[in-house]
Design a protein around this nucleic acid. Structure first.
Lengths: 142, 142
DNA sequence: TTACATCCTCTAGCTGCTGTAGATTCAAGC
DNA sequence: GCTTGAATCTACAGCAGCTAGAGGATGTAA
């Protein structure tokens, strides 16, 4: 039986994060010692590893919830899990495209900067005037 | 003089977001009508456009605060603004690299999925077992 | 004047955690 | 058995960067 701290180390998770996952129902309530401390077995270790790995791949907690449900029904067709992964892939591809546009714009800003005074800083110019941009990059965020 | 709604439309910002920016000190408190409604002039329009554009390029609100300060001191050397932009560029490049690794992993998961039953779903397999991954992708998030 | 769109303040919520405070429990060494 | 110090407990607050809603006041056009 593992303490929460040991489980945390084994999965590369913070202790508080494990308690948070329990709180939102992503992990089941574990058994407790007489004194009230959580004790975990292998099933919980596997489940938390799954969650962490999916998080590293950028899945949202909601998607992970779905994937966990699916992984507990081995008889179901795989199409749903596949659809979730494809959705995630599409999101990642969109973010990549947006980020690439941002990268180009930032690189241009930085390269055009002559290193003079703020009054003719290209960085500030471009920020002031969107029409100087080559790309659209309308979306904010990651 | 513009109402907050008109300013919002012109800059592609939500009304609440403008009030939020004012609250955190990113925009100055504007003048008001007798009845207490906000009224904006061209200076505020420019400033908000600057903020929105920088947000679209992924700058944090803190970075934007710095950039705004700099843009109000035309005599200062441009190096600081340049440094902020370079920092942002580096962050974008790092995120791009991480995302590209994720994209490859997701693509592999999805392509290996045979469309059978959940019990032999490659998507779920890979999530269960990190050792199946080709890349490391240790970092979570954007 | 009368609608009704827009505005006001205030508060709470979102995602996915992270950090703190103050009290309790566990495990190892003596 | 006792002490000590690390680990754990609960509860709550906070982060970024907004977004949404309630409940009421204001502005404007017909």
């Amino acid at each position: 039986m593992l303490s929460i701290g040991t489980l945390a180390k084994k999965t590369g998770t913070k202790v508080q994060t494990i308690r948070y996952y329990e709180q939102i129902g992503l992990l089941p309530e574990p058994g407790r010692t007489e004194g009230g401390q959580r004790r975990y077995g292998d099933a919980e270790l596997d489940r938390l590893s799954f969650v962490r790995h999916a998080r590293q791949l950028g899945f949202s907690l909601d998607s992970i919830r779905e994937l966990l449900d699916l992984s507990e029904r081995p008889d179901k067709p795989c199409a749903e899990a596949d659809a979730i992964a494809r959705r995630q892939l599409r999101q990642v591809e969109q973010r990549l495209a947006r980020l690439e546009a941002l990268r180009m714009e930032l690189e241009r800003m930085v390269h055009e900067c002559s290193g003079g005074q703020t009054s003719d800083c290209r960085v500030l110019d471009v920020l002031r005037d969107h029409s100087e941009c080559l790309t659209e990059h309308e979306e904010i965020g990651a």
